[in-house]
Each structure stands twice: as structure tokens, then as C-alpha cells.
């Protein structure tokens, strides 16, 4: 009886060992298969990478160059701001010295009317954005913000008496041209990308109410299109001066004055 039992135990132990060995061999086989697939894929991607490495290195070079240009642009803007302030001070001093304070007032007023000075006041901020996770191949072109959407919001704000506007920090002036250029929008010769932040000084509540109740914008927000429209009433906001106020000539070079 005890001999039989020992035989059975021995048999079972042997079976367990064989099963474990088989399992290990199976695991090893699977691992080797995965290893093989990954190695093959890696070799393939190394080949592709060699082809792509030139593209990558050019991309890195351009990116570094762009970073330098962006830094230079920021520096030039700061310099322009400093020079503009210095010019304002110099004009004020000179006109005071020459006893022409009336001319100084006129100049300030005309510059304000032209949009050449930054202004503050209560108002509204409207944010327009493309459909979240917009896919060029799957989604309709209607699901991105177009120049018409920006014009429409500006028209709504104008009809509620807005006194000054900006789109992504670009002051909207009489000669402002807003139009689509591929997936971006050009405003005052600057390329803007979404989200488009439209700010306006004026009576915030009615402006916001009009935008929120607008049927055209409601259609643009339906599930099929899914444009994002956000509206915020602000107690105070600043609309910057027109960025090219110091040299507005490209915007008026076709205009011959008839009568002063």
C-alpha cells in the first residue's frame, strides 16, 4: 500500500516537473517570438530612422533658429515699447517748451481715436476655439474657427457699442484686415492660431448676453460642428495699442487726402 503511494507521489512529482519545463519552454518560445518581432521592427525602424535622421536634424536646426528669432522678436518689441515711451516724453517736453500744449492734447486725442494708445475699461472676453481634438481627416472643416466667425463676433460687439477690440492681442483698427490663411488667421499682418481671444471694452453684460444668445454661434456649437465658444464679463481689461502705430504707412499709402 505504502509502496503504491510512493509510486504515485513520484509519478505526480515527475508530471509536475515535466509540466513546469513545458511551461518554461512555452514562455521562452513566446518571449523569443516577441524578441524576434521587436528586433525585426527595430532593424526596420533603424533603417527608416537613417532616412529620417536628415529630416530630424534639419527640424532641430530650424527649431533652434526659430527659438532665436522668437527671442529677438520679444527683445525688439520691448525696445519698441521703450522707444515709444521715450518718444511720447520727448514730444510732451518739446511741446510744453514751445508753448504748444493744445497741439499735445490734439495729438493725444487723434492717437486715441486711431487706436494708437492702449486703453482700459470694463468689457467682455470671447474665446473661440476649434473642436477639441480636431482631426483634419475625420472632422468637417466647419469644426475649425474661420475668419467669418471672428468677423461675426466683432459685428455683435459693435452692435452693442464696443469701444475698442483686440483679437489675440492685436488691436482691431479701421484698417484691420482679418482673413484665413490655411489653418491660421491673419490679423494686422500677424499670423494667429487658435484659441482666438476676442476682447472688447464696453458694457460687458449686454455684449456677453448677445454673444451667448446668438443663433449663428449656437449652430456653430452643435455636436456636428462642436466649435468652442466661451464668454466672460470682466470688470477691467486692457486693449493694447495698434502694434504698428509708429509706422502706419502701409495701411494708408493709397489714401490721398481731399479736404482737411
Amino acid at each position: 500500500m505504502s509502496r503504491n503511494k510512493s509510486k504515485i507521489i513520484h509519478h505526480l512529482a515527475k508530471r509536475t516537473q515535466v509540466t513546469r519545463q513545458r511551461r518554461q519552454v512555452l514562455l521562452l518560445t513566446i518571449l523569443m517570438l516577441v524578441f524576434g518581432v521587436i528586433v525585426a521592427n527595430h532593424v526596420k525602424s533603424i533603417h527608416a530612422q537613417t532616412e529620417n535622421s536628415d529630416l530630424m536634424s534639419r527640424y532641430r536646426q530650424r527649431q533652434e533658429q526659430l527659438d532665436r528669432y522668437e527671442t529677438q522678436y520679444e527683445r525688439l518689441l520691448e525696445e519698441q515699447q521703450v522707444l515709444s515711451n521715450r518718444k511720447e516724453d520727448a514730444i510732451a517736453r518739446l511741446l510744453e517748451r514751445e508753448g504748444q500744449s493744445e497741439l499735445l492734447d490734439e495729438l493725444s486725442r487723434v492717437r486715441a481715436l486711431a487706436g494708437f494708445t492702449a486703453v482700459t475699461g470694463p468689457g467682455v472676453r470671447v474665446i473661440l476655439n476649434d473642436k477639441p481634438d480636431y482631426d483634419l481627416f475625420l472632422d468637417s472643416p466647419d469644426s475649425i474657427v474661420h475668419d467669418g466667425d471672428i468677423h461675426h463676433v466683432l459685428d455683435l460687439l459693435r452692435s452693442q457699442g464696443a469701444a475698442a477690440f483686440a483679437v489675440n492681442g492685436q488691436r482691431v483698427v479701421t484698417a484691420t484686415s482679418i482673413y484665413c490663411a490655411g489653418p491660421t488667421i491673419i490679423c494686422n499682418r500677424q499670423r494667429l492660431t487658435p484659441p482666438y481671444i476676442i476682447e472688447a471694452i464696453g458694457n460687458g453684460e449686454p455684449m456677453a448676453a448677445l454673444v451667448l444668445a446668438d443663433p449663428q454661434l449656437a449652430i456653430r456649437q452643435t455636436i456636428a460642428i462642436s466649435l468652442v465658444v466661451e464668454v466672460e464679463v470682466l470688470d477691467q481689461l486692457t486693449i493694447p495699442a495698434f502694434a504698428e502705430a509708429n509706422k502706419p504707412d502701409p495701411y494708408i499709402n493709397l489714401l490721398e487726402v481731399v479736404n482737411r
Binding site: L103, V110, T174, Y251, I252, V257
Partner: peptide, 22 residues
């Protein structure tokens, strides 16, 4: 002062305060 007047005139044209033709 002439240069300031020219600047003011440019701003006035830009603002739409002048009758213009072309």
C-alpha cells in the same frame, strides 16, 4: 513741430478723420 504735425496728420488719416480719394 513740423515732424509732430506730420505724425498727427498720419494718425488722423488712419483714424478716418480725413476725406480721402483714390
Amino acid at each position: 513741430i513740423d515732424s509732430i504735425l506730420r505724425e498727427k496728420e498720419r494718425a488722423a488719416i488712419f483714424a478716418g478723420l480725413r476725406e480721402v480719394r483714390n
